[in-house]
């Protein structure tokens, strides 16, 4: 981890047309984001800097909140296209979450063919959870076998949103969907659980990249969708440091809250303190002044 982690925000004004984003522009956003993040000119080099051609890449999305506040299929598929252009075989990629039902509800087709891009949930036949609980600090969970058996490199392609208990949910908390018992990790504003789950070897050893879907940001009353407090931010946030990326995501939520005259998360007594815990665990940087933030538009 470099001493000053980089986080890239790419925005695209007018991205949505009739509530759907333009896939071509999403691809352009991803290419711009990844090249800036890796300081490469070409997307192929950028991808080679993060992944090896033999990697089996798991794209962990978040579909818990239904079609209006889940990682958009257009975005996940645009990412697959960009990774393909960077030399990753589609058969070595999986878009996944907890259940097929949630994936379907969010607009994803279930695909299980061996030689193609795979899209399915942990409850899909042939997947499931590990049989023995993994114990690490305060974590005791069964991990999804999608993560432990298939994936060698993981992308957290998470929705950025306010969360009544955790403060915010973003790239780190997205991995709650990789274990069988996320309901056990909501005490104390999810602290230290979010950080400790990321620190668990099955996740830490695989996590390579965070991309926050900030196309529509629920900045209050999350994690469920409330249009009154949802902003069309039209942004994607890229980072190799998972803590720094979520910290920048948090700052965006605070900015949107402030613009609407809402109290800060700290004032509401629900700051995402797990980010500080994550820093202490050596998982990344949570001090905005120590993060290099690059913001561009496409």
């Amino acid at each position: 981890m470099s001493s000053r982690p980089k986080v890239v925000i790419i925005r695209a004004r007018g991205l949505f047309s009739e509530f759907r984003p333009d896939p071509k522009r999403l691809q352009a956003m991803i290419i711009k984001g990844l090249t800036l993040l890796t300081s490469e000119n070409e997307i192929k080099q950028a991808i080679e800097k993060i992944f090896s051609p033999s990697d089996r890449i798991g794209i962990k999305i978040n579909t818990i909140a239904g079609p209006r506040l889940s990682t958009l299929p257009e975005l996940a598929l645009a990412l697959v296209s960009v990774l393909t252009a960077g030399g990753i075989l589609q058969r070595n990629m999986i878009i996944w979450d907890r259940t097929n039902r949630e994936l379907r509800d969010a607009g994803y087709p279930i695909q299980t063919a061996r030689d193609k891009l795979k899209i399915f949930g942990t409850d899909n036949p042939g997947a499931g959870y590990e049989q023995e609980p993994y114990s690490f600090r305060n974590i005791g969970s069964l991990f999804s076998t999608i993560l432990t058996n298939f994936v060698t490199a993981s992308i957290s392609l998470a929705i950025l949103k306010d969360h009544g208990l955790a403060g915010i949910t973003a790239g780190m908390k997205n991995y709650f969907g990789a274990v069988h018992n996320p309901n056990k990790y909501h005490d104390n504003h999810c602290d230290p659980f979010v950080a400790e789950l990321l620190a668990c070897p099955p996740i830490k050893s695989r996590h390579r990249l965070t991309i926050l879907d900030a196309l529509v940001v629920q900045f209050h009353k999350g994690p469920s969708f409330h249009p009154r407090w949802a902003a069309q931010y039209e942004g994607l946030i890229f980072g190799l440091d998972p803590v720094a990326t979520d910290t920048v995501g948090w700052s965006i939520i605070e900015k949107l809250r402030s613009e609407k005259g809402l109290p800060s998360l700290k004032e509401e007594g629900r700051s995402p303190n797990y980010l500080e815990t994550a820093r202490v665990l050596g998982l990344g940087e949570n001090d905005l002044t120590k993060i290099q933030i690059i913001e561009e538009e496409v």
Binding site: L165, N181, K184, D187, P223, S224
Partner: peptide, 23 residues
Amino acid sequence: REIKCTLCPRYCHLGDKERGYCG
């Protein structure tokens, strides 16, 4: 659309689509 469970001393305060600690 939020609720507070009063069955056990946890008093889970939950948003829409969320589950209590009990799961």
